[in-house]
Design a binder for these strands. Structure first.
Lengths: 364, 364
DNA sequence: TTGAAAGCGCTACCAT
DNA sequence: ATGGTAGCGCTTTCAA
């Protein structure tokens, strides 16, 4: 009878138990077509018996790949990032890749943490508000496939994002159409590319109204509430917030100030959190999971591309005669045969609820 | 001038560039005290120049550890898991460990996925509603440190969870105190240990009232709304829901049915989502991040313990004379010197808002 | 179809 | 203080 599994069985033990060489074990456990069915079964039985699981580090070292990729985000507070990460994980898993996560907020040295992560994966997805473009560029120049998610493009790197300006513009126009003439945008365009895009859109859609920018720093509820306290003294018609959490904070502040929404004040957010629905908040819906899934799929493509390129380069090195290369034939194998950086903007959609003015029918 | 980084620099190249042996490079880049300051600087300069980052697989293979741990959860939908994972990641990072995630929902073979994950980490945290106890036991028997999070204990494995029954009881008593006499519990106790605990508590706290159990399957908003549609025909006084999302669904259904909350119907949830606040939902708050952080810290302890034990065992094998062991001295080095399984239940707290009946003061 | 053996890149022990 | 070198466990030619 088999002993309880101890320590960790290696391929050598399996080989011994099955009476074959480790090479055969390796093949039997994967290639399969290069081994007799009988042998394979014997090996599999032995592996089973010893509860054998190949060592990941050993495999990775030999194969030269990790079979894992990573995603970097600021934090997981609020449903936005969580949904994105979830979509990412699901897509990556479907492609046979494990997922490493890294939250940069509250980290002493985010850049170092990301570099360390880069050494553990075959590819990396980096979201906005985490690390600088220089760090991203540095990592990408290593040949490590990188996909940018919800942040401004970096030369030569794929980027996936959700639409900001056009939808923001539509939102602002809607507000103006409601008769709002004094609009305040609450959020810091310099703090995040997304916010910048939203602000730009709101500006474009606010023709005919007076638009004020209030650079509220945080993107959480408390920041919104705090900013609103002073902001509301100016009696704006409408406050367009950088995201839902901030908008919910404004709602709270308005309530505390005795202001009615939307009669005295219109408020809008961005993200369509579950809470927005119950707060009757007009907002914008983003395809969060799809953002994550797209990033994961693109990354996978890039990883495959670069693997192919590398393999080809290796062959060339080993087989080719040692002639001097032509000067324009620089060794940038990971760049060759690489299509131009991909860009995609996923569509977003305004969700009208009560907070932006009276409507016949509002979204439930 | 340094060339753009290509492929991947190895320790050999750094050694060559610095004019030392790879052993010295290895030391200079970590041990530091065993090398001259001058040498160290030279090596670091070379490493810098080549953009050298040690290969993780090679390191792991040589060291026999991954410097990473994993967490398994059903999904990231709703703030609950996201918060837990965030707390986990933060604590793990502080302990110098990378984090691998695995969402089991929508996975064809969760057990296999978890086993594969187990091969990539030094320890594993497993949450409820993911894989069976047998799989957990199987992995734990490997000697891999495991911590259970928000699920029923398994023999010999550490468990961290949030209080369910006591708080649920207090909640039920509060409802009864309000005069509610016909209470319905909406949720499936067999579907999750947490729900089971909550139901048990509600039962204990419903003395003097008539309690009905409706086994609503899902834990999402739509499931709650759907279940409520038929459930409300029985005109219950109060509906205690397994979690907030279900409760919010009930709120929606009640509204559609023209019922006023709390006048016609009291509703309570569990989790204190952001949305609960805006829906005025009475609920229970759990220390979600703390749950995750605790799991990460415990796991770290276990990993250190088992590393120590293994090291000791190795020494014994290499140095000790080949005498026969005493029969009671079985080779279970990963179990020896291991304290009994830890258990902890983190406190939860009832958050009273409007949905459970009129109050003078409600939680904002 | 199978086995022997050369790495993969790094750590750590043993010399010097 | 530094170098030489034996592994760590697996994959993958190259031979047989």
């Amino acid at each position: 009878m088999a002993m309880k599994a101890l320590s960790k069985a290696t391929i050598y033990q399996v080989a011994q138990l099955a009476g074959v060489s480790i090479a055969t074990v390796s093949r039997a456990l994967r290639d399969s077509d290069l081994v007799t069915r009988e042998t394979r079964e014997r090996v599999q039985a032995a592996a089973q018996e010893l509860q054998f699981t190949p060592s990941r580090p050993a495999r990775s070292l030999a194969e030269g790949r990790h079979a894992a990729n990573g995603i970097v985000f600021p934090d997981l507070v609020g449903p936005y990032y969580a949904e994105v990460v979830l979509g990412y994980e699901a897509a990556a898993a479907a492609l046979g890749s494990s997922v490493l996560i890294l939250a940069t907020n509250g980290r002493r040295d985010p850049a170092a943490a990301v570099r360390e992560l880069a050494g553990r994966v075959d590819g990396l997805t980096v979201m906005g508000r985490t690390i600088g473009d220089d760090v991203v560029a540095g990592i990408a120049s290593t040949g490590l496939p990188v996909v940018l998610l919800a942040r401004d493009p970096v030369e030569g790197v794929d980027t996936v994002r959700a639409g900001n300006s056009n939808t923001a513009r539509a939102l602002a126009e809607h507000l103006v159409g409601h008769g709002h003439r004094t609009i305040t945008f609450l959020g810091d365009p310099d703090g995040s590319p997304d916010v910048a895009g939203r602000y730009a859109g709101v500006r474009a859609g606010s023709k005919g109204a007076h638009l004020t920018l209030v650079r509220g720093k945080g993107l959480d509820l408390e920041s919104g509430r705090r900013a609103a306290k002073s902001l509301l003294k100016d009696k704006p018609d409408a406050v367009v917030c950088a995201n839902d959490e901030v908008a919910l904070g404004v709602l709270l502040a308005a309530q505390e100030a005795g202001l009615r929404v939307p009669e005295d004040l219109a408020v809008t957010g961005w993200d369509d959190l579950l809470a927005a629905r119950f707060a009757g908040l007009t907002t914008v819906r983003q395809p969060m999971r799809e953002l994550g899934a797209t990033a994961a799929r693109w990354l996978n493509k890039r990883i495959n591309e670069s693997a192919t390129a590398t393999r080809r380069a290796d062959k060339r090195i080993n087989e080719g005669p040692p002639v001097a290369r032509r000067p324009d034939e620089r060794d940038e194998s990971h760049e060759e045969n690489r299509t131009a950086a991909r860009r995609r903007i996923l569509a977003t959609e305004v969700v009208i609820r009560g907070s932006c003015g009276a409507h016949e029918e509002v979204h439930p």
